[in-house]
Amino acid sequence: MDALPFLTAVYAGQPVWLWLAFLSFIGFLLWLDLGVINNKDGVVSASKSAKMWAAFASLAVAFGAYVYFVYEPDPRYYNSPDNLNQQAVIQYFTGYLLETALAFDNIFVIGMIFTFFAVPREYQHRVLFWGIIGAIVFRAIFIGLGSAVVNEFTWVLYIFAAFLIFTGWKMLFGGDHEMKLEDNPVLKFVKKRMRVTETIENHNFFVKKPHPDGSGRLVLWATPLFLALMMVELVDIIFAVDSVPAIFAVTRDPFIVYTSNIFAILGLRSMYFMLAEAVERFKYLKYGLSLVLVLIGFKIIWNFGLSKELKMVPYMEPHWSLIATLVLLGGAIGYSLWKTRHEGVKPAE
Rank of each mutant, 00 (worst) to 15 (best):
F160A: 09
S215I: 04
M231H: 06
V232M: 12
M194D: 01
I238Q: 13
T197Y: 12
L229R: 04
N204S: 11
W169N: 10
D236L: 09
D242G: 09
R252W: 03
F160N: 14
S215C: 05
G216S: 13
V156N: 11
T167Q: 00
I165N: 11
V190N: 12
E198M: 09
R252F: 00
R193E: 04
I247E: 07
H211V: 00
H211C: 15
H211I: 05
T167M: 07
R193M: 03
L164V: 02
M230T: 02
L164N: 05
I238R: 09
E178Y: 02
D213K: 11
L218H: 04
L181P: 12
S243G: 04
M231A: 10
E201C: 11
P185Y: 02
P224N: 09
K170H: 15
M171I: 00
I237R: 04
I159Y: 06
V149A: 12
W155V: 03
F160Q: 13
F205N: 01
L157Y: 01
P185Q: 09
L225W: 00
L181T: 09
V207D: 02
L157D: 03
A162M: 05
E182D: 14
F166W: 08
P245G: 06
F226N: 10
A246R: 14
I200C: 11
A249F: 04
L218T: 01
K180M: 06
P212M: 08
L225R: 06
K180N: 14
E201W: 03
L187N: 02
M171T: 04
I165H: 04
V196E: 12
A222F: 02
L225N: 07
A161N: 13
L181S: 11
N202D: 09
F160D: 14
D236P: 05
F239S: 02
T223G: 05
K208Y: 05
T167K: 00
S215P: 02
V150I: 08
L220K: 15
V235H: 06
L187D: 03
W155P: 11
E178L: 10
L164Q: 02
L157E: 08
F248A: 02
G175E: 10
K188S: 08
I247V: 11
G146R: 10
F160V: 05
W221A: 14
I238T: 14
R217F: 00
E233Q: 11
A228Q: 11
D183V: 01
F239W: 09
N151R: 01
A148M: 13
E198R: 15
F166D: 03
Y158M: 07
F153E: 07
R193I: 06
T167G: 01
D253N: 13
D253V: 14
N151M: 13
S243I: 06
T251S: 15
V250L: 07
F206I: 00
N202L: 06
S215D: 03
E152Q: 13
